[in-house]
Every structure is written in structure tokens, then in C-alpha cells.
Amino acid sequence: MTSKNDHIRSLYFEKLAGIISAEDESDLEVLLATDAMAKQIWESLEEQAINLRTEEFLRCTDSRKALDQVYSRRVNKKFRLPIYIYWTAAAIMLLISGSGILFLLRQLHTITVDPKLATQQLLDIHKNQSIQLITNNGTIVKLSDHTSGIISMGGIDLQTQPGELTSMHTGAQIVMSTLIVPPGKTYKIILADGTAVWVNSGSSIRFPSRFESDTRDVFLDGEAYFEISPHATSRFLVHTKEVTVQVLGTSFNLRAYRGESTQTALISGSVQVDAKDGSSMRLSPGKIANMGINGFFSQLFDPDELLAWREGIYYFHHIPLRELAPVMERWYDIAVIFDHPELSGQAVTGLMEKEDLQHFLSDLKTSMGVDYEVRNGQLHFK
């Protein structure tokens, strides 16, 4: 039943978006004429579409304009959005999961946001939090207060510009510093060896003012993307609670949030991931090493999707809401509560934008009937 339901839904939205093939359309006509259950599902979808005014949306949408609006949000143009997301030139996204269809309507005038929810207030709150740099002698610098210039702090000169920090060692003593990126923020740092690190929301990285041994060691709690500066004799080591990743010159993404499984994704070069229990895995580009209960396992991934967090976008594919909740908590600095535990198991597929919480929640409610409310600084799904 579920398989047939999903198949009919897929054909329905392909036909609605105008991309159904002639062969599929012919097969569909036969199916609807001979299968009563298929016809019932089809009629139910038509009724839902009328209620959601979906066909009206498709008729009035300027697909070229919609596509331009989507791409105009992308700061770094080297990231492409996978083509399967766009069914009508990005005017409407129909991402189908086993438990529901998530409509992501990207033109603001077509979305009605529930006025009782003050989600914008949540975004305003986390925008006021500061990115901090703390040295081992207790000196604290709020980097959010510095747009550009040089900050001197006990043996370290810091060159700052909006959203980026470059560490330049000037003293004789090596100073350890910790960069703390709060929920809702991201930040880039250039280490003393030229390695570039993009640090995600709710993360911290500890690093020295200079590297002078045969290893270059940094310590990560959370998620970061690394572009390692090559060095002929000095390995670069990233230490987390569960694993250590060692490289010579490469680029990779490491996700190591507390309470979540550790994930190392290799973009280029070669890395070896060593677990605390002695197990290890060597990766080739395009593969992820996941640290599970029974050790490592690997899988392929799409770099454009995985690294989209640097642009404030998070893609998810058929995952339960409970796995999406920690991402929402980091991005929007809000506690996520499931008033009914069974809601946490509902699977969703789609994307979430850091500056667009209201529309994500509205899409979720429209497509899957998941209601929500903000109470006392908490987001309740009910």
C-alpha cells in the first residue's frame, strides 16, 4: 500500500509540474482506469491540491524569476544546488519522503505564516550573541564586536575582517586559544600555517598560536570544514572526543558534536580516522567515515549538499524529526520539544535555511500536518 501510494504521489506531482514523460503518462491513464485504489489516491491528491491552491501557484509563478531568487541567496557561487530539487525551475520543490511530501514554496507572497508564532524573535536573539576567542590565560575577545583591524593579545596578533580571523604569532611563547561559535553563527579562521577552517554553529576549536613540532594539533568540539595547508613533514591532526583525523594536505568536513555520532567526510586528498578504541579507517575522496556503535562504516556523499551549511543551508534526506531537532537547536538557539513523542519519528526530506525558520515551519505544517508553537523560548511540535 505504501509503495503504491508513493508511486501515485510521485506521478501526480510530475504531472502537476509538467515533467511527466509520455510513457509514464500513458501508464498512468491505464492504472487509473483499472485500479480503484490508485484512482482513490489520485482523487485524494487532487482534493488536497485544490485546498492548498497548488495549481494556481504553478500557473502564476514566474519560474525564471523564482530560480534567480533562489540563486541570489547563495553567497558562494561554487556550490550548485542538485537538479533534482527543482521540479519547476525552483518555483516549487516537491521532496517526497516515505511519510509525507514537504512543499518548499520559495516565493514569499505565496506562503502564509501563522501570525501567532514569534519565530522572528528567535532569530533576533541569536544574532545578538557574540563569537568569542579565549586564550589560556583567560583573555576574552568578542570577535563579533570587531569588523576589521588588528587585535593584540599576549603574544598573538589577530587580523580580523567581517566573519574571518587570521592568527599571526609574534611572541616567543606558544599561546593556546579557543574559538567559540554560538548557535546561529558560523566563522572562518586562518591558522598560523595557512590552514583555513570554517566553524559551524554551536562549535568550538582550540588551536596554538604557532605550530613547531612534527604534528599540527587542533581540538574540535562540533563541526568544521578544513582546507589543510600542505607540509612535507608535519602531519595535521584534528582531535575530537571520539576520533583523531590525521592528514598531510587535504580538505574535509568533520562533524563531532557531543551526543551525536562522529562523521568525517573527505573532499580531496587522503585522511585516516583513528578511533579511541584503536580502530581506524582510511578514506578516499567522496566518502564519509561514520563512527557507529560497532565501529566505522563508510558511505558516499554529495559535497555540494554536505558543505552547504557554510551558506546557511542544511539538506536532509528521509530522516526522523528527532534527528533534525539538534540542528534546529544549534542554528536557531532554541530548545525543540515534542509534545507527542510519536511526532519525533516522522521522516522528512527537504532543506532548511538558517535565516528562514518561519517558512520551514510553515512548509512542515502544510505538507505533513505537524503543528508547532513557540512557548517560553521553546519550539513545541504538537
Rank of each mutant, 00 (worst) to 15 (best):
L321A: 06
S99L: 07
A172P: 01
M37F: 07
R255P: 01
L306G: 01
T366C: 08
Q358A: 15
V113F: 10
L133Y: 02
F79R: 13
Q40V: 09
T160P: 09
T147M: 13
R53I: 02
Y187E: 04
I96P: 14
S144L: 08
V113W: 01
H340T: 14
I125Q: 12
Q107W: 01
F252C: 10
N5P: 00
E311F: 02
Q173M: 12
G269V: 13
I8L: 11
R310N: 04
L357Q: 05
W42Q: 10
L283I: 05
Y257Q: 04
V238W: 03
S204R: 12
A22N: 09
Q40P: 01
T54F: 14
E46Q: 14
I319K: 01
H317L: 05
V348M: 10
S201W: 00
I190S: 14
Y225A: 12
R210M: 13
L351N: 02
D145V: 06
I334M: 07
L32R: 09
E260K: 15
T349F: 00
A256G: 09
I174C: 04
T264K: 09
N5Y: 13
S261K: 14
T186L: 03
L122C: 03
K39P: 04
T110D: 08
E223A: 15
M168D: 07
L307Q: 06
I319Q: 05
R80D: 03
R310D: 00
T195L: 03
Y225I: 07
I20T: 09
M1D: 02
D214T: 14
L158E: 00
Q346Y: 04
R310K: 15
M328E: 00
K77E: 08
Q299C: 11
L143Q: 02
W198N: 11
R9D: 00
G171C: 07
L81Y: 07
G138W: 02
G312W: 02
G138F: 08
F57E: 09
I288D: 04
K382H: 11
S344K: 12
S213P: 01
A335F: 00
L81T: 13
A90E: 10
N5W: 12
A38I: 10
D333M: 03
E46A: 12
G163C: 08
E355Q: 15
E56T: 14
S10W: 08
Y257R: 09
N294P: 00
S280C: 09
L306P: 01
V370D: 00
V243C: 08
R330C: 10
E353N: 05
P183Q: 04
S63Y: 08
A224T: 05
M352Q: 04
F219L: 10
M153V: 15
G377H: 05
I189A: 02
S21N: 08
M352S: 12
T166R: 14
S10V: 08
T147F: 10
S280F: 12
P115Q: 06
